[in-house]
Nucleic acid binder design. Structure first.
Length: 487
RNA sequence: GGGGACGUAGCUCAACUGGCAGAGCAGCGGACUUUUAAUCCGUAGGUUCAGGGUUCGAGUCCCUGCGUCCCCA
């Protein structure tokens, strides 16, 4: 099928594609066995004479080239590094030279040759044969300035990874972190499970869900906004230690810290509580920091975050008193403080006001890492009340650099209280910000007996941001959501 | 949702107060067997995001829309 060129530059490259095909060479390449990572090639011992150097095989993309008559130097890049290749008309076979003459920046190439240095001292593969591995029909970005335009980069993410090595490195670090977390949790006896993404009731968090429809059943369904409820059903089911690290979806704004789909880790440990979760969370994150091999002091923007344990633990109420200046249980004091911030207290639940004040006046001080524990109970419908003080819930949030990184509870396993908290809609809280969504199926599961448990949830994207010094969530997501371009 | 900035050649960017749309890289043709952003000679490449308006004249000013980014809620 003929390919049509949308642009003169594409037409130039199509002509070369045809020229390569005319040589009897498949312009889209074929299997090439034994390619050594370029970084490994670079580490090989060499001799003074390139003719006696080690024979190497490499495959990659043409990044730059310098043509000098009947000889050309090109820089080949693969996942591991970059190396110069010399292709001379007298040094390679006829077909290889003919192919080399049709090469453009961005094309894919495999090369067999001997490793040595040029007169200028550059480590070089002196090609004996080259195998064409594919054409770039569209011109790649400028070889030195790369991609500057954010929109172009986002719409051509695959190019962004080529021309922004830091972005690529972050993607690799993300994979390392996910692998570490999985291995670490498995080592502690946690079973990784997969629970439904499509749910009849999107519970477990306060967020607006994406809505879809199942045709055969003719029912509305939602994409999950959290992992919590099915995982707790698995505690009822007797799995005892489970985790899931996967996508959740929230139909809300996009910002430097929010992508509509993001990766959440949630884990549940039967017979634990929020204090066991603090220990677990601390060890897990310390392990994450160490696995990237950068020490326990991490640069983030213009601040340093110190992760050596133990981390500070502070009661929500104590922080509230310190930074708001009134007791969090002081109804009049809280209302007065709210008014001074321009928040009208009438018609709002006391605990809603408390948390608004907390967000305004306390969060900015939480450089962390710091565990903030014992939250106002009304905000926590899925959390066990504190022994001896039902106004508080056994919940903590881990703050690092003023950002909520993890959230954990002593899980509420009492179905009677659970049903009551599901039914209690807090005044002053928009419905999409409420976690109280009646879920009879979940309450029923609790009625069969869920063991006491600690549970923890962590935003993986935020963790990766923090540990890779990324200021936006886009930098740690392979393909961030973007409005499609209208044409 | 509100406010601000931006959108020019394939890429990176110029174009003064409104006055002939330009450069580097990439491309095309040529010279060159040791280059390192190779160099040199020549050449081509534009719906200035889209639509409307003001003006003798608009990339530039005004309006609307689209898109991206930033700040705020």
């Amino acid at each position: 099928m003929p390919v049509t060129a949308d642009h003169r530059l594409e037409a130039d490259r199509l002509a070369k594609l045809e020229a390569i095909a005319a040589l009897g060479v498949d312009p889209w390449g074929r299997r090439f066995d034994g390619a050594q990572p370029i970084a490994d090639v670079r580490a090989l011992p060499i001799t003074d004479d390139p003719m006696t150097g080690p024979e190497v095989r490499a495959a990659g993309r043409i990044f730059t080239h310098r043509k000098m008559g009947k000889i050309r130097f090109l820089d080949l890049v693969d996942r591991s590094g970059r190396i110069q290749v010399m292709v001379g008309q007298k040094q390679v076979d006829e077909t290889s030279w003919a192919v080399a003459e049709q090469c453009d920046l961005g094309d894919l190439l495999a090369v067999v040759g001997r490793l040595g240095t040029t007169k200028a001292g550059e480590l070089t593969i002196f090609a004996q044969t080259i195998q064409y591995q594919g054409k770039a029909l569209l011109p790649h970005p400028d070889k030195w300035s790369g991609i500057e335009d954010t929109e172009f980069a986002l719409r051509h993410r695959y190019l962004d990874f080529i021309y922004d090595p830091e972005l690529r490195a972050k993607a690799v670090k993300r994979v390392q972190l996910l692998q570490f977390i999985r291995t670490w949790l498995a080592g502690r006896g946690f079973l990784e499970v997969e629970t439904p993404v499509l749910q009849a009731i999107a519970g477990g968090a306060a967020a607006r869900p994406f809505k879809t429809h199942h045709n055969a059943l003719d029912i509305p369904l939602f994409l999950r906004i959290a992992l919590e409820l099915p995982l707790k059903k698995l505690l009822v089911a007797g799995f005892e230690r489970v985790f899931e690290m996967s996508r959740v979806f929230r139909n809300e704004g996009i910002s430097p810290k929010h992508n509509p789909e993001f990766t959440m880790l949630e884990l549940y440990e039967a017979h634990g509580d929020y204090e066991t979760m603090m220990e677990l969370t601390e060890s897990l994150i310390v392990g994450c920091v160490q696995t990237l091999g950068q020490g326990l002091e991490v640069e983030y923007g213009d601040v340093r975050v110190a992760f050596p344990p133990p981390w500070r633990r502070a009661a929500y109420g104590d922080l509230f008193r310190e930074f708001v200046g009134v007791e969090m249980m002081d109804t009049d004091g809280v209302a007065q403080q709210a008014r001074s911030l321009g928040i009208e207290p009438a018609g709002k639940d006391h605990d809603v006001l408390v948390h608004l004040l907390f967000e305004h006046k306390v969060e900015g001080h939480l450089h962390g890492p710091i565990f903030v524990f014992d939250y106002p109970a009304a905000l926590c419908p899925l959390t066990k009340r504190k022994a001896g003080d039902p106004r508080l819930a056994e919940r903590f949030e881990l703050y690092v650099n003023n950002m909520e990184l993890a959230n954990a509870y002593t899980e509420l396993n009492d179905p009677i209280t659970q049903e009551a908290t599901f039914r209690r809609q807090l005044a002053g809280l928009p419905e999409e910000e409420s976690m109280a969504k009646m879920d009879d199926e979940f309450v029923k599961a609790l009625k069969y007996g869920m063991p006491p448990a600690g549970g923890m949830g962590m935003g993986i994207d935020r963790l990766v941001m923090l540990l890779t010094n990324s200021q936006t969530i886009r930098e740690v997501i392979l393909f961030p959501l973007l409005r499609p371009e209208l044409k």
